[in-house]
Design a protein around this nucleic acid. Structure first.
Lengths: 235, 235, 235, 235
DNA sequence: GATGAATGAGGTTTCATTCAT
DNA sequence: TATGAATGAAACCTCATTCAT
């Protein structure tokens, strides 16, 4: 029994080792620079070994994305535990999103690559479902906070606006903002030096626009942000 | 002399024909499906001929992006001519952005591909500068409207907020929103059916958050949008 | 002692199970589709286990051929028991050959594959001898009937023609005929719809050419064929 | 104009050089030993070059078969010009078939390989049609002689026997005979040393069986065979 | 300027076989 | 004996780019 468990662990180790090495290569050389030869070589392992764990290159890419998605979900869950009003919890979510981007700068690149349909087609349905589920979980965590705000009376949404639309707004401006930040030039040309602060401010303005109390003009969310960082993501 | 001019025009024609064919292939088959053999074949021209016009494949990709960027700039310039308050002109810009995405759905794909660092490295500096310039021009058109709003008193920005930050906000949420729309699934899971309307609403909330008058709660920007469509982009 | 015997039987069972599964795969997917992974998977057994029974893949192929060869010999032996004149017994052999091809359509494919020299080289000498012996046994059964015909006076061979040459003739035209039948197109182009009947007729003409009495012009061998089918191979 | 012609010839030369090298490899190492790497290496040419002339490995195999088929047709056409009675012309055809097998011993191997459906599937339809046409042409040449014999009264076929069936018989026994000859062992075990003579004799017996005059018991077809060899295939 | 055959590095994938457990 | 992960050679195929004509 113990033997089986050990073997299983070894296999899982290998799988994660593949991901680790693959992520490193992806970070340094991008999608086109990530190839099975390189992964095998960096692992000091035969090429065939990789194929015993992942059906093809695309499956590795997708596994990489799912892995980070899971990391993000965990971070968002922690942020949800933050003590404070709903909008403060949302600020904590923003803090988590920021940290996630810093820790896993390759995740956006992965998403870009995966959005090329030809890639996802080659992956197993199981892994695809895993990815969708991971995404949905994140979205729902955020939507939960919006609903809390509505329930507590901090946020009054007109009947034609659903909580999900607020989530979509935050998602868009955050995703868009970080994407633009990825292209160093554009930002520099706009005379912006701290992209993260910028995204935070934009999101605050957006929530102000929805009338989510307390408005950022009445409350210091920068302090909230710093507290979240200290209390939750100190490690 | 006239002969030379004719020849020059012929060369330009060829260059644009390359782009036309390349764009078509890119739209239908994506980056990996775009290869020189295919371009040459569809143009009824030898492969070598293409290399007389573009140094390499990457240069074509970049030229494609610059081409659409120029198209967008032209559309934004038209939007700037829209009669109305600054915020109405901004709505016209939104209308232009929307139309652009519809007319050139491949532009986002191109941007994605280009953001793979390994690609832009292989292009000539000239073309890179052309791209940056085209982007900047667009940004400045939008920033001009923000400054108009400040000048006219419709928008009061605190000293620590620059007009460019407003532009960054709009840019982020629009870019992010359209990107998310590209992945059909995510949106559907969020129960959103009309992504374009959603992006418009989000942007309105954002500008409301900045206090840009008249607020969307006091003014019907949907009507403005429709007028812009009618008056400017009827063709 | 009994234990050992049981174990031995288990091993034999395994060996035959390998053949059974391998044959099925070969029939469905051909030589290139037959690989050890597939065999192991279909047997719910580890790949290594198969190597405990067969030295290599080629050995399996050869064993498959020997197995069918033995089946054919058994059928030919039954045909030899058919009551009637030698030439009628030969017709029964033809009936057996026909049935064999129908029951084991993969045998010809196996022969083809084996004739690729590179394959048989990798097999053990023992197995090669087993195959030769199985073939020889069949040939001798047929030759026996020819000798019977000579002995009984039905067939008068000139001194320079040996009974084996008659066998060779039948063998050739049967083997050739069935081979050509395998390629559907060729036959259709020749306007032949019932290949089996054709081969029977050709063989009859051949034996007529040798003067083997009663000639097919004087005797209804089709009826003999039907009787053979009924009496011997009814199951 | 001359330039184009030269270039075209060069390309054709290359194509035939590929076939020449491929045939050599196939002869020495069989199907599994024939691979693009080897062909390229033996030609002192890059791998990609081969792919410029042949879409894939299978296409080369098929081209090889068509090439020899054309050679055989040419030889059969020469045999048809042989002076003599129809049955003598048929003997000349037999002579041609024999020579063909000697000159192109790999043709049968090619046919075997091609009969694996998975191979022909990968080839272009054009090439497949070329092969079918080449086969048909040969068959028709032989059928023509049979019809001549019927027309001249040398051969009386019962109404239920078509000339094509005679062709099928000859084809079968020849194809089968040569195939069996390919496996050295079997023949030796049957005590047959001259396989070619054997096939000739068998075919003669078969035609005797059809009553094709003059019968081989009344006429020396061995002499005809030798004359054919001298007169037609001296080179 | 146009051509397109040749290049050859680069990539993905397969699979028979071994061997430590 | 059974296992099955690891091996690694070997195969096929692609394609951006060059260069002689």
């Amino acid at each position: 029994m113990a033997t089986v468990t050990r073997k299983q662990r070894e296999i899982l180790d290998r799988q994660q080792q593949v991901l680790k090495v693959a992520r490193q290569i992806f970070r340094q050389r991008g999608y086109l620079g990530l190839n099975m030869d390189r992964v095998a070589h960096e692992m000091n392992v035969a090429k065939g070994t990789i194929y015993q764990h992942y059906k093809n290159k695309e499956e590795i890419i997708l596994a990489l994305a799912v892995e980070t998605l899971d990391k993000r979900t965990a971070m968002f869950e922690q942020a949800c535990l933050f003590r404070g009003k709903p909008r403060e919890r949302m600020a904590a979510i923003g803090c988590a999103a920021e940290l996630f981007v810093i820790r896993f700068p390759d995740h956006f690149e992965l998403e870009k690559v995966l959005s090329c349909s030809s890639i996802i087609e080659k992956t197993s349905e199981n892994m695809q479902l895993a990815k969708t589920a991971a995404e949905l979980k994140c979205i729902n965590l955020v939507a939960g906070i919006v609903r809390d705000a509505v329930a507590s009376g901090d946020l009054e949404l007109p009947s034609e606006v659903s909580p999900d639309q607020v989530v979509f707004g935050l998602w868009s401006s955050t995703y868009g903002g970080y994407s633009i930040m990825g292209c160093d030039d554009t930002l520099r040309q706009m005379g912006i030096d701290n992209g993260f602060k910028m995204v935070r401010d934009i999101n605050n303005r957006l929530l102000d626009g929805f009338g989510w109390r307390p408005l950022s003009t009445e409350f210091d969310y920068d302090e909230t942000y710093e507290r979240a960082q200290r209390e939750i993501f100190a490690g």
